[in-house]
Amino acid sequence: MSFMKLMVNAQIRISKFMRDKEGASGIEYAIIAAMVAVIIIGFSSSIQGGITAIFTKIQAALPSGS
Rank of each mutant, 00 (worst) to 15 (best):
I54V: 14
I40A: 09
K57E: 01
G23K: 03
P63S: 15
V38F: 09
K5H: 15
S25D: 05
G49E: 01
A60F: 08
I31N: 10
I14W: 04
T56L: 06
I12C: 04
K16P: 00
T56Q: 11
I40F: 07
Y29F: 08
I32N: 11
A33W: 10
G50Q: 02
T56A: 14
I47H: 00
G42E: 00
G49S: 03
A37I: 01
G26N: 04
L62F: 11
Q11T: 09
R19D: 04
I51L: 13
S45V: 03
F43N: 10
S44T: 12
G65N: 07
E28N: 11
P63T: 13
E22K: 15
E22T: 13
S2N: 14
A37E: 07
G42K: 01
Q11V: 05
I54K: 06
F3M: 12
I12N: 06
L6Y: 13
E28K: 11
M18Q: 06
F17G: 07
D20C: 00
I58P: 00
K16M: 14
R19L: 05
G49T: 01
S46D: 08
A33H: 11
K5L: 15
G26S: 02
F43K: 13
V38S: 10
F43M: 12
M7A: 15
T52S: 13
M7F: 11
F17Y: 06
S44L: 06
G49Q: 02
G49V: 01
I31F: 08
T52H: 06
I58D: 01
Y29S: 13
G65A: 11
G65R: 04
T52F: 06
S2W: 07
L6V: 14
G65M: 06
I31L: 10
S44C: 05
K57N: 04
